[in-house]
């Protein structure tokens, strides 16, 4: 019964894809796993209302694969979450990304859904965004005319809004290989244990020098309009000794920042205490 009434083009390589994109207008959208596009289209989402053509990028070899080169881990834009979960490199070097990927939807969704689809769609609850943000991910974007690199943070503009321009395709995600021994964790809270939209996600990486916090990276999702880093919190924590008091203060400050960004909403009575409590719990878990 589901008929999304779109023409689907299936370029076999990057050159062809970019050529098709160059000719296309705003009624054309890229189709990766389709787990946002197809669902959005059937639900009558405004974002896809005038979409009539889809360019399927699943056959393009250049958008696949995970490898390390010159101190960078490179992940193809059309890599599925199942592929990310199976990658030894990701498991070893980017454990938070593996954990975040493994919480997405169900096995069937992870077999289709891609990493670029997640942040290009940029829902508030895109689960891999906080993980990618704490790893300082950047992305490679190509159009027929040019290639550009941009940090993910900059790329993400607002709920369902990014810097992606007409005719552009995200080709790869680039993460500097973490050089030192960061400890960290990813946390997701949903209403159930699978196929759950996040109510809260948190990602934290900490580099300790003895008991002192040499470096810290903090990001959240689903409690703010889009996944975001917390630079003020990070600055506050750097150079301080990791005491229980500090962790409480950090958690309260996280609550304050979330409140400042969102104001009081119907869900704040629940989300504010939970974000503080679970951020604290996450930090305590890393400490141990």
């Amino acid at each position: 019964m589901i008929d999304i009434m779109c023409e689907v083009l299936t370029p076999e390589n990057l050159t062809d894809a970019l050529q098709l994109l160059a000719k296309a207008d705003s009624t054309t959208k890229i189709l990766a796993g389709g787990t946002d596009v197809v669902v959005g289209k059937t639900q009558g989402s405004k974002r896809f209302a005038d979409t009539v053509t889809l360019i399927d990028i699943n056959r393009i070899e250049e958008l696949k694969g995970i490898f390390e080169k010159d101190g960078m881990i490179s992940i193809g834009a059309a890599t599925t979450f199942s592929e990310i979960c199976k990658s030894k490199l990701v498991e070893e070097k980017l454990p938070l990304l593996k954990k975040a990927s493994s919480t997405i939807g169900s096995l069937q969704i992870r077999n289709r859904a891609t990493i670029a689809g997640n942040f290009v769609n940029n829902a508030p609850c895109a689960d891999t965004v906080p993980a990618l943000l704490v790893y300082d991910a950047s992305i490679e974007i190509k159009s027929q005319a040019a290639t550009r690199n941009i940090s993910l943070q900059e790329f993400l503009q607002g709920p369902y809004k990014t810097q992606l321009q007409q005719g552009e395709l995200v080709t790869r995600i680039l993460v500097p290989t973490p050089k030192q021994n960061y400890a960290g964790d990813f946390y997701k809270l949903g209403r159930r244990r699978a196929v759950a939209i996040s109510r809260l996600t948190l990602a934290v990486l900490i580099l300790l020098n003895g008991k002192e916090i040499a470096d810290i990276k903090i990001a959240s999702g689903a409690v703010t309009p889009i996944g975001k880093r917390f630079p003020k919190l990070e600055e506050f924590a750097k150079g301080k000794v990791m005491t229980d008091n500090l962790l409480r203060d950090l958690s309260k400050k996280m609550g304050e920042e979330v409140l400042a960004v969102t104001g009081l909403r119907w869900s704040s009575d629940y989300k504010l205490p939970v974000v503080q409590q679970m951020f604290y719990q996450l930090l305590k878990g890393i400490e141990r």
Binding site: R248, G255, E256, Q281
Partner: peptide, 20 residues
């Protein structure tokens, strides 16, 4: 009991990890 007199936690509202 979360008493929402204030949106931001008081210290005693944090739970020790092994009692969570």
């Amino acid at each position: 009991e979360y008493v929402f007199d204030k949106p931001i936690f008081r210290d005693e509202q944090f739970i020790a990890p092994d009692s969570l």
